[in-house]
Simulated scan of single mutants.
Amino acid sequence: MTYFHARLIEGDFDAVVERTRAALQKHGFGVLTEIDVQATLKAKIGEDFRPYRILGACNPVMAHEALLMEPHVGVMLPCNVVVQQTERGVEVFAVDPASSMSAIENPALLGHARTVGKYLRSAVDEV
């Protein structure tokens, strides 16, 4: 089991970020946080880095259900979706929630995480 699902896309980085947001929204996810890693590394430590954006995606209904199943699961929320520039194109990848949630001994939560993962994979595949 891999801990992420990825797709390589040809196109403009910023356009792919917007397409990723739209695909997430189509599957019930909002973007709660956005980290521009390139800008942050430049500002904080003076290092140049490739375009790299981390989107903290959350499906509020599914997050609520997970929190009811496991009160400490919030340490693993939101689900990260990353857009990065590579030499071959723009890569979009999302965490596999079941991979990280398998550390919690709660079969109901693991099943729920698999469902969330299906939605995230669908969103990535549609970008």
Rank of each mutant, 00 (worst) to 15 (best):
D12Y: 09
D12P: 04
F13A: 01
D14W: 07
D14N: 14
A15T: 15
V16W: 02
V17N: 01
V17Q: 04
E18T: 11
E18K: 06
E18G: 06
E18Y: 04
R19P: 00
R19S: 05
R19Q: 14
R19N: 04
T20L: 05
T20G: 01
R21Q: 09
A22I: 06
A23C: 09
K26A: 15
K26W: 02
K26R: 15
K26T: 15
G28P: 04
V31K: 02
L32S: 01
L32F: 13
L32H: 03
T33Y: 14
E34T: 13
V37H: 02
Q38H: 07
A39N: 06
T40A: 07
T40G: 00
T40Y: 01
L41C: 02
L41K: 01
L41A: 06
L41H: 03
K42I: 02
K42W: 03
K42P: 03
A43V: 08
A43Q: 14
A43P: 03
I45S: 02
I45R: 01
G46K: 03
G46C: 04
E47V: 11
E47L: 13
D48W: 05
D48R: 08
F49E: 04
R50C: 06
R50Q: 14
Y52G: 02
Y52N: 04
Y52V: 02
Y52T: 02
R53P: 00
R53T: 15
I54H: 00
L55H: 01
L55P: 00
A57F: 07
A57I: 12
C58P: 08
C58A: 11
C58Y: 08
N59L: 02
N59R: 10
P60E: 01
P60M: 07
P60T: 05
V61D: 12
V61S: 14
H64G: 14
H64E: 06
L67N: 13
L68I: 10
L68C: 08
M69S: 06
M69W: 10
E70L: 13
E70H: 11
P71H: 09
H72F: 15
H72C: 04
H72K: 15
V73G: 05
V75T: 14
M76K: 00
M76G: 04
L77F: 13
L77T: 02
C79T: 13
N80L: 09
V81K: 01
V82P: 00
V83C: 05
V83H: 08
V83R: 03
Q85N: 03
T86A: 09
E87V: 15
E87T: 15
V90E: 04
E91I: 09
V92T: 12
A94N: 09
D96K: 15
D96P: 01
D96N: 13
P97E: 08
P97F: 10
S99L: 06
S100L: 15
S100D: 12
A103G: 07
I104K: 06
I104E: 12
N106M: 11
P107A: 10
P107M: 07
A108C: 05
L110C: 05
L110Q: 13
G111A: 11
G111T: 11
G111S: 11
H112T: 08
A113V: 12
A113Y: 09
A113R: 05
R114G: 10
